[in-house]
Design a protein around this nucleic acid. Structure first.
Lengths: 308, 308
DNA sequence: TTGTAAGCGTTATCAT
DNA sequence: ATGATAACGCTTACAA
């Protein structure tokens, strides 16, 4: 249309106080122009967005979807089961959302398979389902872990305590596998501890690790910064010197670790980029529902600070 | 309707694979059944939900609105000006949302007055506009500050450094006023520092405070835990003993301070309750648009730990 | 370029 | 209790 006409129409619309009715527009075009962000409510006493992982991805996803004229609506999920898959499916079938970003799934969750079978546009963030052909966005810590190990070797560390994450989650398993692979060229003395991502866990494991320090130079590599922060707390209470007595490395690069001393060496999870990528992938499956989409992997970054 | 009929209908619906079309339902009933949560994007390099204040209120608001069959959609706002007020008004006029939760406003913002004038259902969280008759939800730290001062007095503190928040915000001003009132019965030696809520600020102010410690027993009261955590960092770096050398009290009760040593004495901001209350208030103005709504104030709680 | 009409899938109303 | 019909305000298609 000629821009003169457009302008004239806008003038009149303004004068008449006209506002388009989005509800009617949505019904007519059979699209909600909304994306659903499904988050788990499984952390007792702690809302999903108090976990920086979910809130940072949300932040990025909100910005990215606004740039594409979509809104983001939040859908809390009670548990990660087939009833949850039903609820998610309904959100699309009842036209409340055009597609879903699903995060916080446990390994072996029935959700991705179900959604795919039902032809729902969706993208999984932070979990790589066993089934193939599922659109998903993950991060790969491989390069960062290699750099960490090189640094530990250079600094003559000999023993590494590896505290895993909650093995119910893909990230924890993936991280462990990659860590194990990366160890091959070295001959570190490795001791594994099963963790659960909680601060209390880092605190609880601390005495055993600290009391058994031998002659070898030792380092603790935590699956996330949160556990590392619990360990820091124990060390502060007991006047244990980091990295003098032993080194510590975390994972995630959480903001709050900037309050800790010494500065925590860590692996930065590219959450903002994951959020942007999730919307990007989802948009593709909304626009071309049948197309196969390749999993997206975003490289993590090694952040060398003074705790090793 | 008789439950037998309902059941029969549900059976048939199931068999036919029927899913109600919410877009049509919304158009017909002229309601979106959505609440907009407006958050500022004014913190450079940091999404709104990386700030625990916004994310905790979101968590609670999501749960509360789900209980009332409403969804929450996120609307990021560039700045807190009249253009922002226009955008918010449009969200309701175009029927994208039935009402708005507006947070992160600065003092003297034109937004509340404008929304009221336009008859938009809304609720302000964390700011008390100068105009009266604005529905809003705030917290009041009065009782908690009284308990803090009583405790400081009991422990023979004589001097208090008060580091304010960013005075562009209502909370910071209100906190300062209440603090000043609460001081009256005591004769503490008070020194005020203008802060800005940032961790860097707590760190930056530390040397001056620490180097000038006199004979009197001193305490620093920070307007938020974030600044206090920067101060802790400085003290850890410089081996300054808390509370031996000086006491520290924060405000907010942020989760991450549990990683700090010693445990931070603080004032717990009732964010979850604020989020629930915000939805409650908003629902009332959606259902009865003309009704005057009283401002809601929720009492904060003094959390005594070992940093004083 | 402008105008007219059908259709989206509900809700609401009014008859039966 | 059930059925028929208008209305919601847009999009799309086709006609003038």
């Amino acid at each position: 249309l000629p821009s003169a006409t457009i302008e004239r129409i806008e003038k009149i619309a303004e004068k008449l106080g006209y506002h388009p009715n989005m509800l009617a527009r949505r019904l007519a075009s059979n699209k909600s122009f909304q994306i659903g962000y499904a988050v788990p409510l499984t952390f007792p006493g702690r809302g999903a967005f108090q976990i920086p992982y979910f809130s940072m991805i949300l932040d990025a996803a909100v910005i990215e979807s606004f740039a594409r004229s979509y809104n983001i609506a939040i859908y809390p999920l009670g548990d990660d089961s087939s009833s949850c898959a039903d609820k998610l499916t309904d959100l699309v079938k009842t036209k409340q959302v055009d597609g879903l970003i699903v995060s916080g799934l446990k390994r072996g969750s029935p959700v991705p398979g179900f959604l795919k079978k039902e032809g729902i546009p969706f993208v999984i963030v932070g979990s790589l389902p066993e089934i193939s052909g599922i659109p998903c966005v993950n991060y790969s810590p491989g390069k960062a872990i290699k750099r960490l190990l090189a640094e530990l070797s250079r600094k003559s560390y000999r023993k590494i305590h590896f505290v895993t994450g909650d093995m119910n989650y893909y990230d924890a398993v993936n991280q462990k596998e990659i860590f194990t692979e990366c160890l091959v060229p070295y001959n570190f003395n490795v001791r594994e501890h099963v963790g659960d991502y909680s601060r209390a866990c880092g605190y609880r494991l601390a005495p055993e690790i600290v009391e058994n320090i031998g002659k070898e130079k030792e380092c603790v590599f935590f699956a996330n910064d949160r556990m590392a922060s619990g360990f820091f707390r124990y060390c502060a209470e007991n006047r244990i010197n980091i990295p003098g007595t032993l080194g510590v490395c975390g994972c995630d690069d959480e903001d709050y670790t900037k309050a800790l001393y010494p500065s925590l060496t860590t692996i930065r999870q590219p959450r903002a980029r994951m959020g942007h990528a999730a919307v990007d992938v989802l948009m593709k499956s909304i626009e071309k529902p049948s197309s196969e989409i390749n999993p997206v992997e975003i490289e993590a970054q090694f952040i060398l600070n003074s705790s090793i």
